[in-house]
Design a protein around this nucleic acid. Structure first.
Length: 564
RNA sequence: CGGGGCGUAGCGCAGAUGGUUUAGCGCGCAGCGUUUGGGACGCUGAGGUCGGAGGUUCAAAUCCUCUCGCCCCGACCA
């Protein structure tokens, strides 16, 4: 490709509304163009990278037993209503109406469609297992698109679904996908971390995410440096060490004038935060929920909602709390009736807590779970934090950030039962198919690669996904034979099967070198009067600082040897 | 959805107390010439519904109302 004909220009100035490194570089190098919030055009260079990523994904999926399909983007809304996910997804689902006013959705994912399709094509255990997958544009009306391609509203995703006769089969399919994903990231030059995750609106168990560790990632990862434990902060657990196991003392009131927060109460009474109990109020689908947790911990709302299964969960407003007859700042479940109470299991990891007295300016000492109050549910609903004890080995947890580049789930029979996807087993009994699902963000991977492979001059593409392999950079000067030699070399490199971006512009060397660095093509070949004096060209790898002079007769073979 | 910010040339920005503004500057773009190993220089030139609609006024990029869009923080989110 001749740069003079390429659609897409490099920008000297940094776009004002790009915040992450990868987004800035993709815009500045002329790879993507924003059309609306979370909606982007891919220019030729980006499209070539996406196709290379797709090819890698296809190869690894096929190797793992997958078969490619293409499912409709346009789906009857009815399908989402019957699976119950219309509610769960809410406004994330893009909906529209056809000419007969029938509601349709733009596919955000395809569990419903694929399950329905497979149910019509599978009758016997002999038809299983199956592993269909597709690479397709998906639509999700995110509340807040951000980070360029990282969280877009229209994005390219590979989604795969496994169908097995039993859980053992599903586990094997799942393990195969994990291996395939690892191979994919490996080939794209991305080190990833496999972490435990919440399964969100998709549901299922053993949900795990592949994370590219980077400071600009939007997810927090809690991991243990001593063992293999790693989890998304949404899911992460930690050991809540017992802070006091003395015998329960007598319940007594203590005046706490003007003290409302844990900070104030603990400071006033000169006790550590973990000797207090904190009340937090939520509204779940319109109902007030009373949450109790040890004073030093914070509520993990995802864990909380996994218990409540509410379509809408939010913190209660102060007015709502007061209207319910609760004394804000001095609330506790002791002696209160008529509320749904959820307690974090930390309330049992200690004794003789200080908790609210349910009277203004009054707290209680020596509050003990079960003797003084009860909860409808006691479970782990706390946020795990760096510095906490690892739930596996007891080591100290650490935290980092990451971009989620893949997510695998075990769905079991949730969808197959809803859509009647069953088969007849060896004994002649009808059983639901056991499913798994596996998502991998293709367009997100494009950003992730740039996020991981760049320097202050620009992108540094790994050869495997680079839009072109060679950047042919002639430095023209009047009276030299550089143009002829460069033109001939361009033809020869291509004839040798190499992908070449030919900088045929009449620009100064500085402009060309800077653009070459920005675009990040792996091998730069410079042809100039200076190199031709020695019948050579200069070869420079984008990933290295030094360049070398290579005889014209050797250059093609030399590059071929470095390109897979 | 709550809080904040911003829409002026392809990109980055100035102009905002209404009137010497015929709306500028830098980059980029076009033509000519000089340059050519790390974002060269000179001259000439093209390019604008000042996001949109309505209003106030002798006069609006500038003031008022409404509206659309974009960005950031939070809520939310595979």
């Amino acid at each position: 490709m001749r740069i003079s004909k390429l659609l897409g220009k490099t920008l000297r100035e940094i776009p004002a509304d790009a915040d992450t490194v990868s987004h800035r570089l993709l815009v500045r190098a002329g790879l993507v163009n924003q059309l609306a919030a979370g909606v982007y055009s891919y220019l030729p260079l980006a499209w070539r990278v996406l196709k290379k990523i797709e090819d890698i994904v296809r190869e690894e999926m096929d190797k793992a037993g997958g078969q490619e399909v293409s499912l409709p983007v346009l789906q009857p809304l009815e399908m989402w209503q019957s699976s119950g996910r219309h509610q769960a997804l809410g406004k994330v689902l893009f909906t529209l109406y056809d000419r007969r006013e029938r509601p349709l959705a733009l596919g955000p994912t395809h569990e419903e469609v694929i399950t329905q399709l497979v149910s019509r094509n599978v009758q016997s255990y002999r038809d299983l297992p199956l592993l269909p997958y597709q690479i397709q544009t998906k639509f999700r009306d995110e509340p807040r698109p951000r980070g360029g391609l990282v969280r877009a509203r229209e994005f390219i995703m590979k989604d795969a679904y496994s169908f097995d006769i039993d859980e053992a089969g599903m586990d094997a399919s799942y393990d195969g996908m994990v291996r395939a994903y690892q191979a994919i990231y490996d080939r794209c030059g991305l080190p990833t971390m496999l972490v435990e995750a919440d399964s969100g609106a998709i549901g299922g168990k053993d949900s795990r995410e592949f994370m590219l560790v980077t400071d600009s990632g939007e997810d927090e990862i809690i991991y243990c440096p001593d063992c293999k434990y790693a989890a998304n902060a949404e899911k992460a657990a930690s050991i809540k060490e017992k802070v006091d196991d003395s015998r329960p003392g007598p319940l007594e009131e203590v005046a706490t004038p003007g003290m409302a927060t844990i900070e104030e109460v603990a400071g006033f009474l000169k006790i550590p935060h973990n000797h207090t109990l904190k009340a937090v109020f939520y509204v779940a689908d319109g109902h007030l929920v009373f949450v109790v947790i040890r004073g030093d911990l914070a509520v993990n709302e995802i864990k909380l909602n996994n218990l409540l299964r509410a379509a809408d969960l939010r913190l209660a407003t102060e007015a709502e709390v007061v209207a319910a007859g609760i004394v804000a700042g001095a609330a506790s479940p002791v002696g209160l009736k008529g509320f749904k109470v959820i307690a974090d299991d930390s309330v049992t990891s200690g004794a003789n807590f200080v908790a609210g007295g349910n009277k203004p300016d009054m707290h209680l000492r020596n509050v003990n779970y079960s003797r003084d109050f009860a909860a409808d549910t006691v479970a782990d609903i706390a946020l795990a934090r760096a510095g906490d004890r690892c739930p596996r080995c007891g080591g100290r947890l650490a935290s980092t950030r990451g971009i989620e580049v893949g997510h695998v789930f075990k769905l079991l029979t949730r969808y197959s039962e809803k859509f009647n996807a069953s088969f007849i087993d060896e004994k002649g009994d009808s059983r639901p198919i056991v499913m798994g699902c596996y998502g991998l963000g293709i367009s997100r991977l494009l950003s992730a690669v740039v996020e991981h492979h760049h320097d202050d001059k620009g992108i540094i593409w790994p050869v495997s996904v680079a839009p072109y392999q060679v950047y042919l950079c002639p430095l023209y000067r009047e009276g030299s034979n550089v143009p002829e030699v460069a033109e001939k070399l361009y033809q020869e490199l291509r004839a040798a099967g190499l992908e070449v971006l030919f900088d045929d512009r009449e620009e100064s060397p500085g402009v060309k070198f800077n653009d070459a660095d920005l675009l990040g093509i792996p091998f730069r070949v410079t042809v100039s009067p200076r190199t031709l004096q020695k019948d050579s060209v200069e070869l420079k790898k984008r990933s290295e600082k030094e360049s070398e002079l290579v005889p014209l007769t050797d250059i093609i073979g030399k590059i071929q040897a470095m390109v897979p």
